[in-house]
């Protein structure tokens, strides 16, 4: 079980208020539909990058979903995040093929370069570092994905270089 994911962070109060009205069309679309809980939470996450506490309350009030059900589902699936994330999410693959090809070296190099641990976000909110199990590009192992872009045949140095390039282009 993903015990780590269930523990709430004490940083919650720092979260900025999100524009929850963005959720309205989605709530209209799914209200009363069978099996709507997961698509709704996925929709919220697409909007904000995570599921803010207030979004749960809004779904409860307006879509009639139970808080306990939503929280149960949100902590069950690896996809859902309860904390804000950086602008770029770095997903380092730790599937079998990538593990055999030393994926740990990527995570270590990235942790050192970004000065964060796996699962954390950098101070400037630019990057969040995550581990995933298999991106389906196993023949190019070790692999990482940033946004929609997948990078293959990496090593520590190459992965850090990619991050540095993104950081540079952000500055300009």
């Amino acid at each position: 079980m993903r015990v780590k994911r269930i523990s709430l962070k004490d940083k919650q109060e720092q979260q900025e208020a999100e524009n929850l009205s963005l959720m309205n069309p989605m709530i209209e679309e799914y209200r009363g539909k069978k099996g709507n809980l997961i698509p709704l939470l996925q929709g919220v996450q697409t909007l904000f990058g995570y599921i803010p506490h207030e979004a749960f309350l809004k779904l409860h009030d307006e879509a009639g979903l139970k808080l306990a059900d939503m929280y149960g589902v949100a902590t069950f699936y690896a996809q859902f995040r309860l904390n804000p994330v950086g602008k770029h999410i770095i997903k380092v693959c730790h599937g079998t093929a990538c593990h055999v090809q030393n994926a740990m070296k990527l995570t270590e190099a990235l942790m050192e370069s970004l000065k964060i641990k796996d699962g954390e976000t950098t101070e400037d909110n630019l990057f969040t570092l995550e581990s995933v199990a298999c991106l389906g590009c196993c023949s190019l192992a070790p692999v990482m994905m940033i946004g929609e872009e997948t990078y293959g045949k990496l090593d520590g140095k190459k992965s850090v270089k990619i991050i540095k390039e993104i950081r540079l282009s952000e500055k300009n």
């Binding site: 079998t96 093929a97 990538c98 298999c134 389906g136 590009c137 196993c138």
Partner: peptide, 11 residues
Amino acid sequence: DEGDPGAFMDR
């Protein structure tokens, strides 16, 4: 759902 990490036939 192709959950087996290290497999990509279905993809």
